[in-house]
Structures are given as C-alpha cells and as structure tokens.
Amino acid sequence: MLTLYGTELGSRMLLGTARYPSPAILAEAVRQAGTEAVTVSLRRETAGGRQGGAFFELIRELGVRVLPNTAGCHTVSEAVLTAKMAREVFGTNWIKLEVIGHHDTLQPDVFALVEAARILAGEGFEVFPYTTDDLVVAERLIDAGCRVLMPWCAPIGSASGPQNIAALRTMRAHFPDVPLIVDAGIGRPSHATTVMELGYDAVLLNTAVAGAGNPALMASAFAKAIDAGRAAFEAGMLEPRDMAVPSTPVIGKAVFS
C-alpha cells in the first residue's frame, strides 16, 4: 500500500488530467488506470467561470483525490500564491510544487523550489516537489518539510524514459523511507516498470497516456507495467552476471561416452 502524507492509496499510478482528446476519454483513462489521485491545475477564467466549473464537476464525479499543481510558475511568490489559491478551490493541503527554471527543458528552479517548499510546509501544506534527481537538493527539500519527493527521470512530456538510472538508484538508496514518485519523462510502460523495479513507490504520468492513440488502453497498460515492476521489486531480482549458469541440474546427468 502506498502512503502519502498519511493517506493510503491502492494504486501506485498518479495521473495528470491534461491533453486528452475529450473529457469522456479522460474519465475512461482514470477508470482503466485504477488511479486514486489525479493532478489538476488553476487558470484564469473568463467571466462566468463556467468552463472551470464543468471541469471541476467532472473531477468530482471521478471520486479520486486531487493533487493540484503550480504548473507554469517561475518564481517563489507565484508558486506560493497559486498553492494557496489551489487550496481554497480544491480543499486539500496537497500541492504538487513546480517552479520552472528553464523554458526549453522545463527543468525545475531547485533554489526557488526549496524556498517555496519551506514557506508552504510552514503554512500546513503537504508538498510534493517536482525536482531533479540531485541528492543535495533532495536533502534540502526534506529539511524544508517535504515528506514525499518527485524526481524527474527526463524532461516533462519528452517521453524519453529514465536518462540517469544510476542517479535514480542512488536516490532510492539514500532515502529508503521517503516515498519517491517519478514525475515527468516517462513515455512507455517499460519505462515505468524500470523505475518501479528500482524500488520507486509510484509514477506520475500524463502525456504518455493522454497522447497515446488509445489513452484508456494505454492507461491500462501502464497500470499493469507499474504493478509488474513493483511486484518484481518486492520479489527480489537476480543481479546480472557475465557467464552462463545452467538452469537444468547437472547432477545425475547421463554419460554416453
């Protein structure tokens, strides 16, 4: 069972709600994934606010927890205010904290991230920081009050899969008791299996599912891949070796010459 800030979730897959062909397909993907938490955002609404209201209703009907994000924020003050506004709307202390530092790579500004995390943790938020795989930054985020870390494995939306397995492995070893969620960069179910085999606690996906030819089917494929990787981690895998080892016992083998 995955426990995030004291909340138990039955699924190790968190799903974003953006970029689906239609709201109905989003809903079907959430159902097929069996996910129990989805990410959402806040944007300026035109007078009337009805578009946001319709989306809010759809999310409420899904019956899952929401993890609001601060996507698009580039400064500490923007991220902190967006988090507070998200808490007002969604009624949760959970916040996926993003402070973007670079336009092309969308990599986090980790200095601003740590500062914003400290402020928000001090105001009762349960912060899920979107961070890099840097160990020292991760330490600072823990010091700032984060109890979950969400390292990228590749740039957001790139679908390129784990780019630095060694760093992910080191992070897992260094923080054995902190829930670690790979957020961003996963493109295929096999990528998700890989990080789950490393012992990551969960995966947060969006584009890989929403941009697939059949998002609901892809959601189902990812759910199986994540479960498989987790089961493999728990079962304990063999370490690779260079030389062959016969799988059939050699004792009692017939001698014909």
């Binding site: 953006a18 689906y20 806040l42 944007r43 578009q51 946001g52 809010f56 996507a71 939306g157 584009t207």
Partner: peptide
Amino acid sequence: IEILSPMKGG
C-alpha cells in the same frame, strides 16, 4: 485582481 478556476493539469 486574479480570478482563477480549476483546469486540467499534469
């Protein structure tokens, strides 16, 4: 004045 509303997000 900022007036924000729920929207899809990743």
